[in-house]
Amino acid sequence: MKITVLGLGNLLYGDEGFGCTVARRLQETTDYPDDVEIVDGGTQGLYLLDYIEAADGLILVDAVIPLEAGFRIHRYDNDIPALIQKKMSSHQTGLTELLALARLHNRYPRELVLIGIPPKNLDMGIGLSPEVEALVPDVLAMIRDQIQAWLTP
């Protein structure tokens, strides 16, 4: 089973860099077998399609505006909207669009988990807010548990 952890966001805008930061921390602290790939995907849009389509089990980590309010870790399993929207710039290819394209290509990941936090600070600047930083250890644990569960036959 090919497992990919894809951290999304922009490191230059505070908590927008949440996904990238989590991916980097995982890379620094965990040694996984070759078929587990940890990627700091930034805001790369279509460049990331290959990572999404190549995965059997995909964990997406991103800053999100969740459906239900509440400052906590929000986790969604499999049921994530796949939408393609009209846009002004080819740089606007968002996560939902990548998922839609993967579905259109019949290469939607078999298992999909989205782990998100609502951002506290999106101002230009490097580093997470203390509130979001405090959630990172639990996010890392959640990801490691999920990878372990998928790796265990």
């Binding site: 999304l8 805001t43 999100v64 505006i65 459906l67 994530i80 909207p81 710039s89």
Partner: peptide, 14 residues
């Protein structure tokens, strides 16, 4: 997809 969850990734980029 019968059920729909709205997850709104934050607008990003320049």
């Amino acid at each position: 997809m019968a059920k729909r969850i709205v997850v709104d990734p934050i607008p990003r980029i320049e």
